[in-house]
Design a protein around this nucleic acid. Sequence first.
DNA 1: GGCGAACAGGAGCGGCCGCTCCGCTCTTGG
DNA 2: CCAAGAGCGGAGCGGCCGCTCCTGTTCGCC
Lengths: 217, 217
Amino acid sequence: MPRAAQPPLRRDAQRNRDRILAATRAAFQERGIEASVNDIARRAGVGMGTLYRHFPTKDALIDAVVDARFAELTEAAARALQAPDAMDGLRAFLFAAVDLQAADRGFKDALAARGRDEQGVRAARRRLQAAIGRLVARGHEQGVLRADLATADVTVLLWATARIVERTTDVAPGQARRFVAMHLAGLVPAAAGGTADVPPLTARELQRAITRGRAAR
Amino acid sequence: MPRAAQPPLRRDAQRNRDRILAATRAAFQERGIEASVNDIARRAGVGMGTLYRHFPTKDALIDAVVDARFAELTEAAARALQAPDAMDGLRAFLFAAVDLQAADRGFKDALAARGRDEQGVRAARRRLQAAIGRLVARGHEQGVLRADLATADVTVLLWATARIVERTTDVAPGQARRFVAMHLAGLVPAAAGGTADVPPLTARELQRAITRGRAAR
DNA sequence: GGCGAACAGGAGCGGCCGCTCCGCTCTTGG
DNA sequence: CCAAGAGCGGAGCGGCCGCTCCTGTTCGCC
């Protein structure tokens, strides 16, 4: 749904709109979806009124910014479909997903959403799920995935990794990759596939992962 | 650290303390750690002043209630150590853990904590980690666990399941068990170990798991 | 049974958040 | 160049939350 056709924005309006979007991206990336609208407005060098004329609600702001990330991840899934081995493709996709979750906390929050769907993100989410479905299907065809693995299981896995990213990114980046690698192979010894070369959390890192957040306030 | 020795509470004070604890347990169980102190006081049929004299801070309230759950789970780990096969034991422990997370959302929140440690829960958490450590060690001795699995990996797994419980318990209870079973066995076809007899999320359940939460407000 | 101390209760404080309202400013078409 | 009106900014609203404070009540020792 192209948004042209409307009378074009005044130059200052367009400039402010761009600034708001940039500030939103930055704020969500760093602080996650909980970044306050006030903060975003200040970052953009813009008043609250201006912000809310461009985006009538905080959700609109989120949608505007998060859509692109969904598309990015969907594209990663499409690329993963090119890999000769379906398992390699799935692994590459999952690594890309957790890296994106770590790089953009707003996106991580939106993915693991607590009830934000309804609106614009819905379509993007559907496209992503469809892309994941193709990855899984090819894994089944090649017989490299257990037969009872459903597409929804991958979505659930992404919810889980979001939590791990939340807790560990600051402390030991890559833990989510380790988790994904283990999940693919299982905890049994025969398991092929390693740990993505990521060591387990040390005692100190674990402690920091638990303690953190309070201090971050 | 026994809490007797203090001059015994007046009868009404003791009665109110018990009511507050019961109300706290109920509130956290249903709503998680975000249940408001006001709510708890109302449930207990007690004023804010009363509540805050007994527990000087919300954290104190959380600690008082959550400690018992940590002990429960630690005990489950001890029981799991009795199982002849270490893998069976670990699986039983993990199932117990996710069931507890589902049954008591306050505990789930405290386990996956965002920075609540410092205080009383710390000791309980350490004991739990030690118990998990024994489970893992025995798995290694028996050679039923991959050699590079660390104790911290199990803790991380519990963080992950907490998220899954949050999203799916209302919609498709048991999903977390499915996830655990798959994590143990891996997504590869050779994998022994099934899915804990839990089917994947259906499309409708997935949708509800995403949409929910907003409606729950 | 009377009195002092422990306790109960709830209105209210301060802080944060998403969002609104309205007097002023600046762009732009004629 | 100038007015019409789109666009701007930020003080402030209402709501929630954890927590405090102070008045009036209740308990339990003597």
